[in-house]
Simulated scan of single mutants.
Amino acid sequence: MSENVKTITEQIYLMIRNDILRQNRKMGERLTVKQLQDQLGVSSTPIREALTRLQQDGLIEYQPNVGMRVVTMTEKDLREIFQMMVEYDCIAMRFACESSEREELLRRLSHVQENAAQCLRLSDLEKWEELSDEFHLEFYHFCNNRRLRVAAEKNRLQFGIFSNAYQRLPANQRDIQCQHDEILRCLMAGDDDRAIQMLRKHTEASMEKALRCLRSVKADD
C-alpha cells in the first residue's frame, strides 16, 4: 500500500470516528462504501480499511444482511463500559502514583486543571473537553504498563460517544471540574486511597449523566 493511500485511510478513519463520537452519525446509522464514496470522492479501498479499523475499535458493527452500522448501545452496554473504565482508571492511578515520577504526574495534573479552569472561564468548550479527558489519560501516561493502556483504549473510545454529549452541558462541566479538583487535592495530600474513592464516585456520577443522554437519544427516535 502506498503512503498516499495510508494517509487517505487515516483521514477517513478519523473523520468517521469523530462524527460518531460527536454523534453526527447516530447510533444504528447504516454506513455503506458507496455512500461514503459519494460523500468523500475517494476509491473504495481506503474506505474499507477505515471501516475495518472502526469495527476493531467497537464503534461500528457488521450485521448479516444489513452491513455496517454505527454501534447501538443499550443501558446494559453503557453500564458495562463504565464498570470496566473505572477499574482501568483506578489501576492506572495506583500504578502512576507508585511510580518514581509521581511528582511530575502531580505537576502535570495541576497544569491540566489550571488550563481547564481557564477554558471554562473563557467558554472554550472544545479545549476544556480535551483537558477533561487528559486528566484521566495522564494516569495512563505514567502507569508504565502498555498492556493496561491498550486494554483501556477501546473501552474509552466507546465511552467517548456519550462523554462528548454530557460534557457539553454547563452544569456537568462544573461538576466534572470540581470532581477532578477533589481527586487532585487528595493526591497532593498523599491520600491515594481517598483519591481512588473519589475517582469511583466521579465515574458513577458520569455514568448517570451518560445514561440520561442515552435515554434522551432513545426518546427522540
Rank of each mutant, 00 (worst) to 15 (best):
I8T: 14
I196T: 07
L122P: 01
M84N: 15
G160E: 02
E126W: 04
R48G: 13
I91H: 09
L40Y: 12
Q55G: 02
C178F: 07
D193A: 11
D89P: 03
R194L: 10
A189N: 02
Q11M: 13
S2K: 08
T32L: 04
Y88N: 04
T203H: 01
I12D: 02
M207L: 15
T45I: 15
K6I: 09
I176D: 00
E29Y: 05
C90E: 10
S43H: 06
P170R: 01
M73W: 10
L125R: 00
K218M: 12
E80K: 14
A219W: 08
F159E: 07
F142K: 00
C213G: 03
L199W: 00
R156V: 06
Y13R: 06
E208D: 13
L31S: 05
I161N: 04
L120W: 07
D175I: 03
V112D: 06
I12A: 03
Q37W: 08
L36A: 01
A195M: 02
V66A: 14
Y166M: 02
M15L: 10
K34S: 12
D133N: 10
L36K: 00
N155A: 05
M68A: 09
E104M: 15
L106Y: 04
M27H: 00
D220V: 13
Q173C: 04
E103N: 04
F162E: 02
T7M: 13
I20D: 01
R168Y: 08
K26M: 12
R215M: 00
E153R: 14
V71G: 08
S99F: 11
S132D: 09
M207N: 06
E103Y: 03
F82A: 05
E61Q: 09
T32G: 10
E208R: 02
E153A: 15
H111L: 13
I12F: 05
S206C: 00
R102A: 15
A205S: 09
E138D: 05
L199E: 00
C178L: 11
Q11A: 15
L109R: 03
Y140N: 01
L31V: 03
C119D: 00
L211H: 02
F139L: 06
D77G: 12
Y140R: 02
L31I: 03
L169C: 06
E61S: 12
L59D: 08
S163M: 02
S99W: 05
N172H: 03
E98I: 07
G160Y: 01
E208K: 06
D193F: 05
Q83F: 11
R147C: 11
S2Y: 05
E114V: 12
R200D: 05
V42H: 13
D175V: 07
D191M: 11
E98R: 11
E98Y: 12
K127L: 14
V33H: 05
L214I: 04
L54A: 09
E104F: 14
K26H: 11
E87K: 06
A205G: 03
G67D: 11
C97N: 05
D193C: 13
E87D: 14
S99Q: 08
S100I: 13
L31D: 11
R25K: 08
G67P: 15
M93V: 06
D221M: 11
Q23L: 03
R156T: 12
E114Q: 12
V71M: 13
A152S: 11
R48I: 14
N4V: 11
F159A: 11
E103Q: 01
Y88M: 04
L36H: 00
R147S: 15
R146K: 07
